[in-house]
Design a protein around this nucleic acid. Structure first.
Length: 861
RNA sequence: GCCUGGGUGGCGGAAAUGGUAGACGCAAGGGACUUAAAAUCCCUCGAAGUUUGACUUCGUGCGGGUUCGAUUCCCGCCCCAGGUACCA
């Protein structure tokens, strides 16, 4: 009697079994090699989405595979549970962020369990718990002590109506997403982490991470943006404090004809203070502050500026240079001041033309001489220096170094290194985050909380008012406190930390999740497990999260908490799961199940199909994996995610194809049922001799080839899609093999071996069905705890291969040859081929190229 | 704008290192089984041409180049995606 494949019964049974037996619980074991596999933990936004399913399935296959290879595998899961959406839910639906978050965690945990992931659930952490964030408050205190955490003015997006800071995401076309008011730039005192202190090391180690994708390292290097240049000093006309600029183009110094200052730079207002221009300039600065930073620096944006009524001098030519405030100069890069060389910088050129400022060519185009009077755009290519005093006639790039030295020699500059990387602003004027452990005292300023007073617990009794602002500010019991330094009444800091802080060290915490002694990380356990051997997560985190996590690791190392330089040895950045967006003209973005036959289910209005973008809650273009599991089971969901595309590529969602994965599992199920009676008492082929029957020999070769291919695909590059196709081929082969007689024990033992191979190879991918089949076949123990199969190179080898024969690079024939056939024989056979001779008729053979084991190419005239 | 990737049949994708383009799967069409349907099994499936041959030509976003040979390497362009420092 054959049993039907019923995924739901099977999956529940095995999930309960693993949970009860604690199959995936791990502890330190010095006798085994450890393997720490980590997927980026999720933000508990509500439900699991396909991006999670994909990410965690990839990780689970790798974790189960490594376990089968004998590693002691740490595979934990937790929640990145502070963040903005919880606060939005509070404002929109009146639900407390902690309630909302914990409800979501409940739902998502049960969803993950339904997927059959091999987590050690005893290590679960949630970053919004005081027992987690208390340690990062401790790290903050240490950072403060070392000057790695500091306070300075920074600009934020400010909605005057909501009286709140807006995330860039909440600014839509310069307007507040909630009330539509115009968003302005506001200066606020903010806390920063001095990541720039580690800029050089972060950059240097980019070349010491061979397990990371090249593209991620390139992005990080560019983000850090080290450039060698020159700081040049421009004396002021009136003898006041000179202006310093940073430039990488000191070769153009002789062409600098005016000076530009960022509008929001303090110098701007300082220069015009008390002059008739003050009001006019202030208006300009206010206007610039309202402009979006992104747009401001784009090439097409109208360059605007205002004369500040002051002059400085070019240190090499002595020219009097007018000083302008400009909208396209950034205050926080370099010194916030730029020497303008209109002839060789397009932005400066446009600015000079607009305000009628002088142009002097200093790099001459060797092919087409430039004339400052007639040029229509800046010349930004290489050339020969002119009008450049002692440097005339030299190629500009070669003179860079000498000009820097010359400036140094006359005391007007020095060679410097500049990084694009800025310090990490961690202040958030929001409620749902870890409190910054600082007390603000009128007398003593910002005073750190005593270590013994940690954690500073986020109060739960809060109210979100319609007037906006941070609810923390209104909790008197939280805000009012004593200054730890002088004891006078003081106010607690109400800024909370950026949620990237939590995700910068959670991987350390997983090693000792319940350790409650200072510093929250058990040195011995962390020493055993760290670094993470394989980290897996979305490519969208390529810069920020990964850079911050690297920074924290180095810093905690310097605090003596960790013994490693880098947190992640190998990194796999999976592509995103994308889907087209659907939008109702009246109700905005719609979830797929709010669309009924191309119309909005609420109002019946025809929907607009938008661009394909990464699945995200804000765009509502998400597919609920629960439906998938309900209909086909977790194994099908897992198989589909892996089979649809290789992990690093984006996956465009389509409902088609899931059916095929389910069909394949049924095929596997049925072939086992088919042979179950015949092979139950037969042991798998012992591999000690060649089988006699040719069909058995072929099948044996095929399963050795399959083990080889699957092992390589998983081990080398996590290409599960091709690994799965290889197993599919073996399954197809098995269906084609004529059924052996019931007493043909050798043939049956080969069949058994082939079936076992399929079941074992598929186990990390579809663990439930394979575990069930294994037990039905009378296999010993748990597959999850079994060894990965090995293959015999000799048995996998093809003895006959196809050689392609080309004439002029075009395929004209194919021949069969023994794998070790000599080149001469193959060449002979190739030239003897009838079709090849036809194509060579009347031609003279010039050259014959032989690629062993592949092809012969005959070049003729 | 800037930085980083990507673009292959109707669709998802496959082809370490330059060497048979399209493995495997989906969809589609045809057939078998069935009273019928589902399920299952088998066959066809890049395009065009025609002397209907186991043939020829074209074909990996577009335009050039290197090479006996290019999806793969180089140059230029177009389009798509991610990041762009307060979404995570």
């Amino acid at each position: 009697m054959k049993v039907k494949y019923n995924p739901h019964i099977i999956e529940t049974r095995w999930q309960d079994f693993w949970e009860e037996k604690k199959t995936f619980k791990v502890s330190e074991d010095d006798d085994r090699k450890k393997y720490y596999l980590l997927e980026m933990f999720p933000y508990p936004s509500g439900k699991i989405h396909m991006g999670h399913v994909r990410n965690y399935t990839i990780g689970d296959v790798a974790a189960r595979y490594k376990k089968m290879r004998g590693f002691n595998v740490l595979h934990p899961m937790g929640w990145d549970s502070f963040g903005l959406p919880a606060e939005n839910a509070a404002i929109e639906h009146g639900i407390h962020p902690s309630v909302w978050t914990n409800q979501n965690i409940e739902v998502m945990r049960s969803q993950l369990k339904r997927m059959g992931f091999s987590y050690d659930w005893d290590r679960e952490i949630s970053t919004c718990e005081p027992k987690y964030y208390r340690w990062e408050q401790l790290f903050f205190l240490w950072m403060y002590e070392k000057g790695l955490a500091y306070k300075k003015g920074g600009s934020v997006n400010w909605c005057p109506k909501c009286k709140t800071v807006l995330a860039n995401e909440q600014v839509e076309g310069g307007l507040c997403w909630r009330c539509g008011s115009e968003v302005t730039e506001k200066q606020l005192d903010q806390w920063f982490f001095r990541i720039t202190a580690y800029a050089e090391e972060l950059l240097e180690y980019c070349d010491k991470l061979p397990g990371w994708p090249e593209k991620v390292l390139t992005m990080q290097k560019n983000w850090i943006g080290k450039s060698y240049g020159c700081e040049i000093i421009f004396p002021m006309e009136d003898g006041s404090e000179p202006i310093k600029v940073f430039t990488t183009r000191q070769d153009t110094i002789y062409g600098a004809t005016f000076m530009l200052v960022a509008a929001e730079h303090p110098l701007t207002m300082k220069l015009v203070q008390g002059t008739p221009r003050e009001e006019e300039v202030r208006a300009f600065v206010e206007k610039v502050k309202k402009q979006d930073k992104l747009i401001r620096t784009s090439d097409y944006y109208e360059k605007e500026g205002i004369f500040l009524g002051a002059y400085c001098h070019n240190p090499v030519t002595g020219w009097k240079m007018p000083i302008y405030a400009a909208n396209f100069v950034l205050a926080d890069y370099g010194t916030g001041c730029v020497m303008a060389v209109p002839t060789h910088d397009q932005r400066d050129f446009e600015f000079a033309k607009k305000y009628d400022l002088p142009l002097v060519v200093v790099i001459q185009n060797p092919d087409d001489a430039l004339d400052a009077e007639t040029m229509t755009e800046a010349y930004v290519d290489e050339g020969i220096l002119v009008n450049s005093g002692p440097f005339d006639g030299r190629p500009n790039l070669q003179a860079l170094e000498d000009i820097a030295e010359y400036l140094e020699s006359i005391g007007r500059g020095k060679k410097t290194v500049q990084y694009r990387l800025r310090d990490w602003g961690i202040s958030r004027q929001r409620y749902w985050g870890a409190p910054i452990p600082v007390i603000n005292c009128d007398e003593c300023g910002a005073v750190p909380v005593h270590e013994s007073d940690l954690p500073v617990v986020l109060p739960m009794d809060i109210e979100f008012s319609s007037e906006g602002g941070s609810p923390l500010e209104r909790v008197a019991s939280f805000v009012n406190c004593e200054c730890p330094s002088c004891g006078r009444p003081a106010k607690r800091e109400t800024d909370t930390m950026d949620t990237f802080v939590e995700s910068s060290w959670y991987f350390d915490r997983f090693c000792s999740p319940d350790y409650n002694e200072k510093p929250g990380l058990d040195r011995k356990k962390v020493g055993y497990w760290m670094p993470v051997d394989q980290y897996i997560g979305g490519i969208e985190h390529a810069i920020l999260h990964l850079l911050y996590a690297r920074f924290f690791t180095k810093m905690l190392r310097d605090f003596g908490v960790l013994g490693i330089d880098e947190p992640f040895t190998n990194l796999l950045t999976q592509g995103m799961v994308c889907k087209e967006t659907t939008r109702c003209p009246r109700h905005g973005y719609l979830y797929p199940d709010e669309v009924k036959e191309g119309a909005c289910s609420r109002c019946g209005e025809k929907i607009v199909i938008g661009k394909t973008e990464k699945m995200s809650k804000s765009l509502k273009n998400v597919v609920d994996p629960s439906h998938l599991i309900d209909e086909y089971g977790a194994d099908t969901a897992r198989l589909f995610c892996l089979f649809a595309s290789p992990p690093e590529k984006d996956l465009e969602w389509s409902d088609q194809g899931v059916e095929g994965s389910f069909r394949f599992l049924n095929r596997v199920w049925r072939i086992v049922q088919e042979y179950l009676e015949d092979i139950r008492e037969v042991s798998p082929f012992d591999e000690e001799r060649e089988p006699k029957d040719p069909a058995s020999r072929e099948l044996r070769k095929k399963y050795h080839q399959t083990v080889k291919k699957v092992t390589r695909d998983i081990e080398d590059r996590f290409h599960f899609n091709t690994a799965i196709s290889a197993v599919m081929e073996l399954v197809n082969r098995l269906y084609q093999v004529p059924r052996p007689e019931r007493d043909d024990l050798e043939a049956l033992s080969i069949i058994r071996k082939a079936i076992e191979t399929i079941v074992i190879l598929l186990n990390p991918i579809v663990p439930h069905i394979t575990e069930e089949l294994w037990r039905m076949m009378g296999g010993e123990g748990l597959l999850a705890e079994s060894a990965w199969p090995s293959y015999d190179e000799e048995a996998a080898r093809e003895e006959e291969i196809t050689i392609v024969i080309q004439v002029q690079g075009k395929v004209r024939g194919k021949i069969q040859a023994a794998a070790d056939e000599s080149e001469e024989v193959i060449r002979e056979k190739a030239l003897a081929d009838e079709k090849v001779r036809k194509h060579l008729e009347g031609k003279e053979i010039i050259k014959v190229i032989c690629v062993p084991g592949r092809l012969v190419n005959i070049v003729a005239k």
